[in-house]
Amino acid sequence: GLAAMVLAMISIHDHHLLKHGTLRLMASFGEEIGEQGSKLLKNKGYMRDVDALLIGEPTGYQIAIAHKGSMDVRFTSHGIETHSSRPQNGYNAINPLMKLLIEANRFFNHSSKTNSQLGKLTFSTTIFNGGDQVNSIPALAQAEANIRTIPEFNNAEVEKNLKEMIAKQNKAGAKVDLDVYMSEPSIETNGQSKFIKLAQKIGAEFVGKAIPTFALNPVTDASNLIIDKGPDFPLAIFGPGNDTPHQVNEYVDQEMYLKFIDIYIALFTAYLNN
């Protein structure tokens, strides 16, 4: 998507297609590991005068106007090591961590809170490590989880609930710490802007079918870039791709890729020139 935008901008520049306005390329870094690049762009003021934003994530011939938030959290449980024949002399770091994760999975994944576009929050334990010898009570255990949040169940509320669960375990004798090392909010726009309607119209002309709007599960740089823009802001997450991201056979169809360059050229110039 980023390269397609660059090629589109080169063509717009070389053929003098832009008569009004400014087209800005914002190439971020670290999008997969905390979105540090978009945070920097936002903090440097690059979004201050932006009237519409297109993010080239691989949506294919559909436009995302909303996405869930994402939190990466780490739980560290401290115990007292001892021989497994005398467990009463130590404290098993794994046990309270298991209780915490079971409670968190049950609480978050069975919540009744939902969003009409994004659905429900999801909580997934993705890493678990504890102990290093089968006949020793472990003194340390760690687990990591990823939570996909929604406006109705936001990041701050999730963190508050986790801290309450941890406090309950610690009151019973555990020593569990929480580290929220990534927290990006959900984004929800209404998709009613002129920019979205134009993207749908131009996209349909190039591909010969309707271009629907939808809500995306993965988080994007929009979490940082438009966090203060409100639901009316023209956001289009629209780029060449399919359902193979993060798979060993990830690919983009050549015809779709080349069409997206033309779509970007037509969309950017039509929006800014009118």
Rank of each mutant, 00 (worst) to 15 (best):
A3S: 15
R24A: 07
G60N: 11
M26W: 11
G230P: 00
Y257V: 02
I127R: 11
L216N: 03
K197M: 14
P138M: 00
E255M: 13
S223C: 11
D243T: 12
A236D: 06
K201C: 08
P185M: 06
A199H: 00
E32D: 05
I166H: 00
D132F: 13
E184A: 15
Q169C: 08
G45E: 10
Q142T: 07
L258C: 11
G1H: 01
S11G: 14
Q133E: 15
N249C: 12
E31A: 05
L53R: 06
N190I: 02
Q133Y: 13
F260S: 06
A270H: 01
D262I: 06
I55G: 07
A199V: 02
M26D: 10
L100H: 02
A222P: 13
F206I: 12
K44V: 13
E255W: 12
I55P: 06
A3D: 10
I147V: 10
G69R: 08
L53F: 04
E255V: 14
E144C: 09
E255F: 10
T126R: 10
G241S: 02
E103D: 11
P87L: 05
F195Q: 08
L162T: 07
L54K: 08
M47I: 14
E205S: 08
N146E: 03
G241M: 04
G60E: 08
F214T: 01
M165K: 10
D228V: 02
H83R: 05
Q133H: 14
A66W: 02
S11Q: 13
T189V: 00
Q88C: 13
P212A: 01
G173S: 06
A66K: 03
D262C: 14
E159W: 01
N146D: 04
R24D: 02
I237E: 04
T269Y: 01
E103W: 13
S70P: 12
A64H: 03
R24G: 07
H16Q: 15
S186A: 06
A236I: 04
N217E: 14
Q117Y: 10
V176C: 07
E157L: 09
P185C: 06
